[in-house]
Computed example of a mutant assay.
Amino acid sequence: MRGRRVAFQGERGAFTEEAALAYFGDSVELVPMRTLREVFSAVEGGGADYAVIPIENTLAGSVGEAYDLLLEHELRVYGEVILRVEHHLLSVEGATLEGIREVWSHPQAIDQCRRFLESLGANVVPMWNTAAAAKRLAEVRDARVAVIASRRAAEIYGLRILASHVEDDSNNYTRFFVLSKESRPPTGDDLTSIIFSTRHEPGALYRCLEPFAERRINLTKIESRPVRSRPWEYNFYVDIVGHVRDPVVSEALDALSRRATFVRVLGSYPKWRPRDAGRGQGGAGQGG
């Protein structure tokens, strides 16, 4: 994958950049973007070969915008990364914990550190990215301000760690999707992500899930998101164990397509294996 470009939302030091490095190693060029929409557009338009996006967190839940953009765009889920997220309170040299009056960070990070922030008693200001907050503080050098960001951001922007591990729970993990125009072949240890919608009638969801239960296909995730054009109707986002090319999965999806009003396969991809971190989870020999 050397020479490939990987788009992500944020600045250098963002958690999504860490996820990209965990997946690809240093063999790719990382391309920071301001918004998730720009990240999707970069891959679709050829400005990047892959994207890495946050999809859900064990404390703060799903990233709704990411799920909505998966529906809007034609990119494939190519892989996943599960990253242990460790938040730190950073400020400039000379700052003290007692002197902090304002804390900047991304809303998801703020949600994940709510108890610590309440005990600190400082004013909380949402920013578009944790690393962007760190970069801005490094520019203004205000000792009354701190940011919640990563240890990597502290190193990059020359900030000091005032408090470590300020997340509410140590079991703080974020799952990221790796996106591409390409599809992945089966590895024998895969997940498949799909979207479907049902008729608005009793038992409709049950009938759509029945083909998976009948074939003993495990669902690892199910979540509903509103259909924007139809109030009080929902799309269902589901992850299942298996690959779309597996005969039993293919049969279940065929049955689902006859019962649902809309079905789309987002992609089949290998389960995250930390032991393969930095190797692209299969590399070019696995479809790119």
Rank of each mutant, 00 (worst) to 15 (best):
V241Y: 00
H73I: 00
W104R: 08
E72M: 03
L21M: 13
L120T: 07
I161N: 07
V103P: 11
F262D: 01
T130S: 15
R199A: 15
A42W: 04
H165K: 14
I55D: 03
L70P: 00
K271W: 06
Y234V: 04
F8H: 13
A153H: 06
L209I: 13
T198V: 15
G61W: 02
G99T: 09
A122L: 05
E29I: 12
V124P: 00
E56M: 12
Y237W: 11
G45Y: 06
R225Y: 12
V31L: 11
S91V: 04
S91A: 11
A14E: 12
V52G: 02
L205C: 01
E80M: 13
E44I: 02
L83S: 10
G25T: 08
S229V: 01
D254M: 15
E155P: 01
I110V: 04
L159C: 11
D49M: 10
R141A: 13
F212C: 06
A163G: 15
E98F: 12
F177W: 05
M33Q: 14
I55C: 12
C208N: 13
E74S: 12
A149H: 07
D26V: 04
I194D: 01
R152I: 02
V147E: 02
R259M: 10
A163N: 07
F196K: 05
P211L: 03
S91K: 10
A146Y: 06
V166R: 04
F8T: 09
A163S: 15
C113W: 06
P231Q: 08
R12N: 13
A109S: 14
Q9P: 07
L253M: 12
G79R: 01
P226C: 00
E72G: 00
N172L: 07
L256W: 11
P54A: 02
V249S: 11
I100T: 10
D142S: 13
H73N: 04
V265W: 00
A20F: 06
R207E: 15
E80G: 08
A153V: 14
P186H: 09
R114G: 05
I194H: 02
V238P: 05
R175E: 13
I217S: 10
V166K: 03
G285E: 10
D26F: 09
G267A: 03
R76W: 01
S197V: 04
L191P: 08
A149K: 06
S170T: 05
L70E: 01
N171F: 09
C113P: 13
T58K: 03
L219M: 13
A277Y: 11
E65W: 07
G10T: 00
M1Q: 09
R225H: 08
Y269S: 03
R275I: 09
R114W: 04
G283M: 04
P202K: 12
T198C: 15
F236H: 05
G25V: 06
Q112N: 14
T35K: 07
A132G: 13
V92Q: 02
S257T: 15
N172C: 07
L30E: 15
R216T: 02
G10H: 01
R115V: 13
C208M: 12
Q286I: 07
A153R: 12
V43Y: 07
S224T: 08
R230P: 00
W104C: 05
W272F: 05
I217D: 08
R199Q: 14
N123F: 08
I148L: 09
A146E: 02
D49F: 07
E74F: 01
A277G: 14
A146M: 05
R2V: 04
K181A: 08
G267D: 10
P226M: 00
V77S: 00
